[in-house]
Design a protein around this nucleic acid. Structure first.
Lengths: 176, 176
DNA sequence: ACTTTTTGGTTGCGTTTCGCAACCAATCGT
DNA sequence: ACGATTGGTTGCGAAACGCAACCAAAAAGT
């Protein structure tokens, strides 16, 4: 899923998709979140073709999202485990799950619930918040160049000092 | 990116990926978040092939993530706009962006920052929290069957009343 | 030692999707 | 009427995917 373009876009979402956006990859990580570690387990749970699974696992190891360890045993089974980088996909994963629950399955028909072990209550919906914890709606956010912004980003999102506001206010969804 | 399998999995992430997991789709939504509305704008910003863009936009309209409106003007320009369902992708989008910022670009080299317009401060990192707002780490969460769980989900995540715990505690990352 | 099983692949091949460039139709401005 | 603009569609070669068969290493079984 990455022939030439869009890996090199100055956008962390594009780069994230380059690492975990291919078909099956996020579902492999789902199984890893659920405790699966072995090639055979992933294959049986997902029904993914073996050559594809091999390619995905190799890439996930190469990008530092999983580690591979060989253990003694019948055919030297490999154990794939999440790294810190891999575990940190969880918020994005859960955000996606909550979106699917809400807009596809319907919340009343969610296949699984993630609950707080301490209370048994379902976890909260992930929200975008200010640093002080205030929930924010899209209209209250703005996109500005970051420390790694290139010229194109500055042109697009930079404070247009020379007269006027940015042409398109990011995250300010207009309705009419 | 959806020949036969994995759309029908009883998993909201799988279903979400079926709608927005194809190549380019999330980047089209990015441009929509940034205010783009027209076919030509998406095409120019992304560099995506026109036939692909057409297919993606049609699907996004069909799944209720975008709306298409024709306006008077030179060639009857179409305006693609986010629906509520589409706007609600933003948390997942930002979670993915923050992951990319942290683990690929490096936080000191993030291409863009999303700031709270009121304070100018960067927004908080998205976290998984309990309903009372307590931040949760993976070890403190558990996956249990939801209201729409089928037999396979119950077998996998159901409380094993008949002796013993669930064989693999989801989200309890083991290290050794 | 020899065979069998398990594990985790690899290889070939047909199908689908992607990417590119050329072509096209409707509409509005002039 | 004419030409520019918009938003496509079509055809074709390249890449990715999906399936099934084949394979090699290593440990268990005998």
């Amino acid at each position: 899923m990455q022939t030439p373009p869009f890996e090199d876009q100055p956008c962390s979402v594009a780069q994230a998709l380059g690492e975990i956006g291919e078909r099956w990859t996020l579902l492999i990580l789902r199984e890893a979140f659920f405790g699966m570690q072995r090639f055979t387990d992933f294959q049986a749970r997902l029904g993914v073709a073996r050559n594809i699974l091999t390619a995905r696992l190799n890439k996930l190891v190469a990008t530092g999202i999983l580690t591979r360890n060989v253990a003694p045993g019948r055919g030297n089974p490999r154990f794939y485990r999440l790294t810190e980088k891999g575990r940190d996909v969880l918020p994005a994963f859960i955000a996606l799950m909550q979106w699917g629950d809400r807009w596809i399955a319907g919340e009343a028909k969610a296949p699984v619930r993630v609950v707080d072990t301490a209370t048994g209550e379902e976890i909260a919906r992930l929200r975008v918040c200010a640093r002080d914890g205030r929930p924010l709606v899209a209209r209250e956010m703005r996109v500005v160049p970051g420390p790694g912004a290139d010229v194109s980003i500055h042109r697009r999102f930079g404070a247009t000092a020379s007269g006027g506001e940015a042409p398109e206010a990011a995250f300010a969804f207009r309705r009419g």
